[in-house]
Design a protein around this nucleic acid. Structure first.
Length: 189
DNA sequence: TCTCAGATTAACT
DNA sequence: GTTAATCTGAGAC
């Protein structure tokens, strides 16, 4: 896993599709399959790490395999998997999950019933899995939040596009998602 | 189905 | 003082 995560974010981002994010909470497991990601890098003006290490982005420049959790729009958290060797400010934003386990808990955290809206966005999935700033810097090989390889070897139909919600370096095709999956945030993008 | 304004605050200039 | 890797509900069509 670390061999993969040491690679550049644009390599890691599509490779993480099909992996699972597993949250352990009060004896329960909440799990989802990653179906949408985006790559960010320090050489990329859309990245938080573009202007160098700051208090917020310190984790992005640290060990691969840790979580970079940021707070945005005054109310939302989003989670990244830190990639690249230590010193490289890069990461992969987890944009959507297909719920696998603990759906009732996700419904409670999200305060909605519709399964289709539980985890089809970067802030939605953080709310569904109760991920907040306390997870910034957390090592993702350990509970209570773990990144785990796919359960099977089924191949996925992967599509790429421009990234969502950015205003700079908008041309890069650094968003990756599972084509046809019902939990992708912007299916037609 | 789609478009758009409002929410709400930490981080950075 | 400005911006933001977003989400939601309301109103248009």
């Amino acid at each position: 896993m670390n061999d993969l995560l040491r690679q550049s974010s644009e390599i890691v981002a599509p490779a993480l599709l099909g992996w699972r994010l597993v949250r352990t909470l009060e004896g329960k497991q909440l799990a989802g399959m990653i179906v949408e990601t985006e790559a960010y890098d320090q050489a990329d003006a859309a990245s938080h790490s573009y202007k160098g290490m700051t208090a917020r982005t310190r984790v992005m420049f640290g060990e691969p395999g840790h979580a970079y959790v940021y707070f945005t729009y005054g109310m939302h958290y989003c989670v990244n998997v830190v990639t690249g060797r230590k010193g490289r400010g890069s990461g992969v934003l987890i944009r959507a999950l297909e719920p696998l386990e603990g759906i009732e808990s996700m419904r409670q955290f999200r305060k909605i019933d519709n399964v289709g809206s539980l985890t089809n966005g970067p802030a939605k999935l953080c709310q569904a899995l109760a991920i907040d700033k306390a997870f910034n810097g957390h090592k993702l090989s350990e509970p209570p939040l773990q990144l785990m390889p796919p359960l099977d070897n089924r191949s996925l139909n992967i599509k790429s596009s421009t990234r969502i919600g950015i205003s700079r370096d908008t041309h890069r095709l650094w968003r990756f998602y599972v084509k046809g999956n019902a939990y992708v945030s912007h299916p037609k993008h």
